[in-house]
Each structure stands twice: as C-alpha cells, then as structure tokens.
Design a protein around this nucleic acid. Sequence first.
RNA 1: GUCCCCAUCGUCUAGCCUGGCCUAGGACAUUGCCCUUUCAAGGCAGUAACACGGGUUCAAAUCCCGUUGGGGACACCA
Length: 470
Amino acid sequence: MTQVRVRFAPSPTGFLHIGGVRTALFNWLFARQQKGVFILRIEDTDQSRSTDESIQAIIDGMKWVGLDWDEGPYRQTERMDLYRSHAMQLLERGDAYWCACTAEELDARRKEAEAKGLSQKYDGRCRDRGLTNPAGDAALRFKAPQEGETVVDDLIKGKIVFDNAVQDDLIILRSNGYPTYNFSVVVDDALMNITHVVRGDDHLTNTPRQVPIFQALGFSAPQFGHLPMILGSDKARLSKRHGATSIMAYKDMGYLPDAMVNYLVRLGWSHGDQELFTREELIEKFSWKHVQTSAAVFNPEKLLWVNAEYIKIIPPAQVAQALVPLLEAAGLKDEVQIVSADWLAQLVILVKERAKTLMEMVEWVRPYFGQSVICDEAAAKKFLTPAMAPILSKLLARFEAFPSFSKQPWEEAFKQMVEEEGMKMGQLAQPVRVALTGRTASPGLFDVMEILGRDRTLLRLRQGVERASG
RNA sequence: GUCCCCAUCGUCUAGCCUGGCCUAGGACAUUGCCCUUUCAAGGCAGUAACACGGGUUCAAAUCCCGUUGGGGACACCA
C-alpha cells in the first residue's frame, strides 16, 4: 500500500470561500484517516488575477477552521522550470506542437462557431504544420488523442466514459511562457505523487483533458473524486449574493470553527442519522461511499443550529476564550480586562443556551459588565413604575440583611415576599430583572444575582428603586 | 449548440449497490401543546417527499430505458 497523498489547490484570486473549505475538508479528513499527507498548493499561474493578499486569506482561513497541512504551501510560480521542461518533453516526443494562432483570432473563430451553432473546439489548423517558435510568441498545444475513450473511475460518481473525439488540443504553455491550469496541475500532481485528486464537480470535464497528459508524460493517473457543488437557496451556484462567502466572515459573525466544519461535512456526506460529530469521529467515520452525488443547497439556518449546539457542548472556558475578541470589538475592552477567566466562563454558562452565535452572546452578556446598568426605556417604563417602588425597596432591605450572596436563602426570601404581597412570581420577577439587567429577558434571576455578586445586585436594585420612584 | 453530472419532505439527508423488513426514517425550519420568574433551552405531537412515463419482476424509492427538470464544462481562468 502506498501512502495516501492528497492536496488542496486553490487559486489565489479572492478569499477562501465555503466551497473551497469543504473541498479542503474532505481531502484533509481522508488524509488524516489514511495516515496520509495533506498538501497545500497555491495555483497562481494566472499572473493577472493572483494576489498575495489572497494567499494570506487562504492560509488564515485554513488555520481558522483547523485544517493543517503537512507540505506546502507550494506556489506554482516557483515551479516554472518544471512545467517548461515537461512541456518540452512532450514537444520532443511529438505529443505537443507550436500554435501560431493569436488569442484574438481564436476568439473570433470561437464566436463565429458559436453563432453557427457549431462545435467551439480548436480547429487544429496548426496541428500538423511542424512550426517552430523562433520569435518566442507561439503557444504550445497538447496533441490530444482523438480516438477511443477515456474512462474515469470516480471515487464518488463511479465510472464515467468520455469520447476522445470531442477533446480539444489544449494550450499547455501560453505565448508568455506560463503554463495553463490543465498542464500545471498534471505536472504537479504527478511530481508530488498525489494519489487521490479530490476537487469540485466543476472539474469533472477537466479530467478527460488531464488523463491523456499524465499518460503522455509517462505517469500513471491518480484516482479522482468529484465533490458535488454547493448551491445557494435559489439553487444557483453559491456566490456573494447569498450572503457572506468568505470563511472569515463567519468567524466575525460569531461562528465556531468546529461548528463550521461539522455543518460543511454534513453538507454532502452522512453517517446514518448522526448530525453532530467530533473531529476524531469525522476522521474515523468518513468514507467516500457516503458522499452525496448531487449538489446541496447551503442552509444558513441549519448552520446556525449546529453552531448553537456547539456553543452548548464545548467547554465554557473555551467558548469564553473565543468570545473575548468579540467583546473587545464591541467596546468592552476595559471591562473584559478586569474580569477573571473563571467568571467569564461562568457567564458563558448563563447565556450559552440563549445564544446561537458568539455575536449574539456578546449582546446577552453585555449587561453583566460594569457597575450600573444601561436600561431599556420601554422595559423601565413598563416595570419600574411608582407602584413598584415600595415593594422593590422592601425587597432591597431584605437582601441587604444578608451579609453575602447565597442562592438558596435569597431565593427563599424573594419567594416569601411574593407570597406576603399576594403577588405572582412574575409580577415581582420582571421589575427586578429590569433593575438588574436593564432588560425584560435574561437568565434565571438568581443566576443573574450570583454572577453580579452581592454588591452590584444591591446597587442595581437601589438604582431601580430610584428610577421607579422618579 | 456539443459533452458530462445529477434527481427522496421547503432544506440537509437515511434507505438504492446486495429489490420484499418502507404504512419511506432522522435532522433543520415550521405549527400546536407541555415545562416556566422573562427569554431561551428542553420534552411531546403535527404538517410535509420517492420528478414523470414505460419496462423487468410474484414484488421497484431501490434494476433498465426514455422524457422532463436542474447543474457543470466547452478560454493563452483556475
């Protein structure tokens, strides 16, 4: 058994998006399961579109979702000699030829063919001209076999047969000397000993173009696997129209990387009825057999649910840690600094069942920082009424009698007062909640008091009484 | 236009390979109820799908053919 070697090979022409992450993820899972090697390779042979910022964005994105690579990042622009020397091999063997047609001419002919409803294939006019390239401005074309069939046994789709007669003589070296995609991938996949090429469905028709190049170069082709596409809610290919597509945008929106991974892997793969998996489980249970053959619609609501599940499952201290940067960004930098990690973890426990994202959690948690509270006007108007003032004042007095906070006695005192006043629980609880948190919705009252501590509880209650009286 | 892929609830999917256990299961969303100091969470229940047409077979969601529909590819982009 040779060792599994897979790669993720994005082109640095923009940020790392959802689809790319999923492709990377399937490769990574397979590599980890097979104790293989996962390679990151940057396909930057398109000079005009590749940027260094994009490369950094890819690296940042991969790191955030925790997809670590064993080799690379390789950059194709650093491997130019390899492509050129292999292209020359093909030329020498008669498997490639120089083509003097200019891009403009080709474009014009293609448009004409399209207008007439004919094949848009290259007409092969330079194929047998035996041209040389003295001026250095010709492009090199691969002489694609025109007879027989190319059969691909896809890991996901099964056996697919392509007629060689429809294959084009692809340009493998541009007139500027740079290789094109279909050639550089082959050279790299061959030279890097890639055993399994797993990529998006959109590359399916590239496979019969690439297989003959492997063969002409004297390499055996790797195994191929084509992942179905991810679609937007309108069933069109996922794009900016469907909201944030950069993976890092999800970080900013308060998604947990593990939740992202869990959602994405379930989008196109399943293990019976199981919805939630640890990474270890994913690595253990992953199999090509259960990868879906059809495209899947990206469903933000389910992602939200998965994220909420992770917020509940993950150790609170860990959630707290991920929350800190968002708190700082929300203007709570000073407040966060003076607070202990333990206290923050406790706070997370209070709100983790209410927040579906870290972003929402920031809002849930905001009232528990600072001495006083910022009170919602409508809430105050409704619950901190003059009529409530004496009752709240009475409650305050009872609480003040306790030298320290303790849940049970405080709760008993509270309930006793409700009874004495002939009130319903909610009639007293809501005004107190507003006084303590400034809002009508919060975690359990006594949990709130516990997190605030005796002093702040009393302070806020006192301020609530004032407000109600005023 | 040519070539390729795909088709189960609104969405993600189980089942399909190896036909009967499918009166088609789970999850998200949605609706109702319960729980309840608020908001959540949780529990219970409900609505909801085998694209269509032909075969093959005692028997088809499952196998075969066709139709329709969706997607992808056809660049000196990747």
